[in-house]
Design a protein around this nucleic acid. Structure first.
Lengths: 248, 248
DNA sequence: GGTGGGTAACTTGTCCTATAAGCTGATGAC
DNA sequence: GTCATCAGCTTATAGGACAAGTTACCCACC
């Protein structure tokens, strides 16, 4: 499941309402639109030169992300940022790199809590079919180490496959909503993520623990993998910061 | 944060697109609408006697819940149920009781993984203000044991307060999306949840561990609380099933 | 007979113009 | 000072039109 072509979506031109929503969100984040003074349908329509239908759908999108509150008769109001839907890849895409960096760390914290247990649960009940698919993804990753974007996509699929084996729609959905991780970390580190080779080795360890149906080993392997992932991210961020500092 | 009046929302008449989306979702779940044969905007407009604007927003809602895929020029297609957004309270509300029952168990599993750690994190960094609010919620819960609906709302607020203390927007959002738990469990057990008195005692234990800033104790207290919660839910479900069986 | 291009039919995307329904705040009567 | 009323804003819904994209069929050509 969860196999939408994110790569295609990234290329495809978004619809007008999405573009306008992105623009407005950025303005809200930058402080350009003051709290509680969001534009109405007509305002949006006039300002962006779009029809009222488009303005309307724009507000619907912003409302669905809990960025604004919309109700008949009342003015649109901007909601506190703490309440926005940070699980939505759409919103993440519109946020500035610094906030995405923070969110990446918080996302990592969430994964550390969930994924080792998911791996353990999967080890207890994994099927041969799942193991076959995981094997295939391992091979594909090994072949894709030169293409980080494609690699990260298979990487995510590998983790999702394990999550699916735990047979829990809530957890599945949570992990699925973390699919912006790859794109976001590339946006932060701004270069090919290091250590893809090491990652493949770690994935293999997890896979072998699953083959052995050893929950404790799976949990430990996943924990190691996440911990290394995080160190790499932090290191990359550090390098980037240093480079930015040197440029100054 | 996350303080919308869910109780009011439940009373308020939903907009036309939401009503139509609920209807269509139920028909998809019941198998009335076969896979890959979802109605188009015009179909919806004709069948329900609504304008195309409403039909359009209906499809937008279904698409945002990952129930269908919508794209220009292509027919609307129903997505596999495993990919639907089960974190959305809206979708939960439209699903039949049996599926909600399953989801409740899966939600519980998620909470067991996250909440004890959240409590431990909170114990390490909790502020006096948060403790004051928790104290207030404890008092309110004690006073509301006769009104399960109001009680469950404060209950959720108590858990959210602890989650907030962990200062992680991703985890906060995940726990927030579990806000349908109260309503759903009432729908399943179909009566006043038992053991509200015991729940208050358990909440107090958690609170005291936070006051003592003792992560291990907080984790243990939360774990106990969740475990008891679950037993109650299962017991209630059992009673209900038995009653249904007796009626036959 | 198979291949290819082209077109017709259907879909969603966007625009325009109305009207209904709901909220807010100011005005004015009491 | 209090409360009802209403004007002026907002969103909700309706209907009709055209643009743009996709699919599938059909026909000409090889």
């Amino acid at each position: 499941m969860q196999r939408r072509q994110e790569s295609l979506d990234a290329v495809k031109v978004r619809t007008l309402p999405v573009q306008v929503a992105a623009h407005l969100t950025r303005r809200i984040v930058s402080g350009d639109i003051s709290d509680g003074r969001a534009p109405s349908e007509l305002d949006i329509s006039r300002e962006f030169g779009v029809s009222r239908v488009v303005a309307r759908e724009t507000l619907k999108i912003l409302a669905s992300l809990d960025i604004v509150d919309v109700a008949q008769g009342r003015r649109v109001v901007v909601r506190p940022r703490a309440e926005w839907d940070y699980l939505s890849p759409l919103l993440i895409e519109w946020l500035p790199a610094e906030i995405v960096g923070e969110l990446l760390q918080e996302l990592h914290q969430m994964r550390v809590l969930l994924e080792p247990e998911l791996a353990a649960m999967a080890a207890a009940s994994v099927t041969g079919e799942t193991l076959d698919r995981l094997r295939g993804e391992l091979d594909r990753m090994a072949a894709l180490e030169a293409d980080p974007d494609a690699y990260l996509e298979v990487d995510h699929e590998f983790h999702m496959e394990i999550c699916r084996a735990a047979d829990n729609r809530i957890l599945d959905r949570i992990m699925y909503s973390a699919r912006w991780l790859g794109t976001a970390s590339r946006r932060i580190t701004n270069e090919a993520p290091a250590g893809l080779c090491r990652a493949t080795a770690e994935h293999t360890e997890i896979y072998e623990a699953l083959v052995a149906r050893d929950p404790a080993a799976a949990r430990a392997a996943m924990r190691r993998h996440l911990s290394n992932n995080y160190s790499t991210l932090i290191a990359e961020k550090g390098k980037q910061t240093k480079r930015a500092a040197r440029r100054r």
